Amino acid sequence: MIDREARMRKRLAMVALGLLALPGLAKSKKIVLPAYVLKAHTVAVLIDPDAGIAYDDPRANQVAQKDVETALLKWGRFEPVISTQDADLIIVVRRGTGKLVDQTIADPRQNNRPGMIDPTSGGLAVGGQRGRPLDASDSGQPSASPTGVHPQTEVGATDDSFVVYEGKVEGPLEHPAAWRYTGRDGLRPHGVPAVDEFRKMVAEAEKAASKNP
């Protein structure tokens, strides 16, 4: 009985490997960006609301946020804005912890940035108060005071993430993402590979759209 079960498991494993070897299944599907991405002009970059503050690098997510905004400014395709109400797209970033399980600090104030984005010769500066900041939920209402900062455990957030959502909709982060990138050092300063990959995707989508308007 045991030998029969072992042979059955082996046979199923071989079938599964054979299916993976088929050309039609081995290739990943080509990603098609939604039309609203190509029509977008403004973008707001937010820190993932679920991301915690690392004990060893407390400003990692804020630095990644500014690096992404700087890379977008250099690209010139989209205009970074502070308010999610003014954004055609919302990009959510999160620096990976590099660990399968890590202790961080939950703080809802990470996305509370008053002011405007001002490109400078050295990169990017944020300043100039323009009303109260908005909550990451894009409800259109000013963010409330945090109920409390507390430790939390992050599981599986080993890699950097960069996710694009449609803006100017109710609860944008609750909608399916238009595109996502996850990888080690995807939000690396100066280079920001995630922005480079997104740039390639947009270029391919625009090229395809020009052939099939």
Rank of each mutant, 00 (worst) to 15 (best):
R130P: 00
D160V: 10
Y181R: 02
G52R: 01
Q129T: 11
D88A: 12
V81E: 09
P58F: 07
N111A: 01
W179H: 09
D57H: 13
E69V: 15
P80A: 03
G128I: 14
N111Q: 11
G123K: 13
Y165H: 13
I82E: 10
N111H: 09
P142N: 11
P108M: 07
A177F: 02
E69M: 15
G131D: 05
A157P: 00
I53C: 01
V92W: 12
L46Y: 14
L124Y: 03
S139D: 15
L89Q: 06
A144S: 15
G127P: 04
P133Q: 04
G122M: 07
G186Q: 14
R184H: 09
D185C: 03
L124F: 02
L100M: 03
P108T: 10
D88Y: 02
P114N: 04
V163E: 09
K168M: 04
D50F: 01
T147G: 05
H175C: 02
R180Q: 14
D185H: 11
G122N: 13
A177N: 09
D160S: 08
L124M: 14
R94P: 01
P133N: 06
E79Y: 02
P119N: 00
G115S: 01
P80C: 05
E170K: 13
K99C: 05
L100A: 09
A178D: 04
P119H: 07
G96H: 06
V101T: 04
Q62I: 12
P176R: 07
A51H: 05
T70E: 15
A144T: 12
A136Y: 15
Y181C: 11
P119W: 02
G183R: 11
L173T: 14
L134G: 15
S143K: 12
A71P: 03
W179A: 12
G131S: 06
T158N: 07
D185N: 14
L89M: 02
G127W: 11
R59D: 08
L46G: 07
A177C: 00
F78S: 00
V92N: 11
L124N: 13
S83L: 08
V149C: 07
A87T: 13
P119T: 06
Q110E: 06
G167A: 05
D56F: 07
G115C: 05
Q103K: 15
F78C: 01
S83I: 01
R77Y: 12
L124Q: 10
G98D: 08
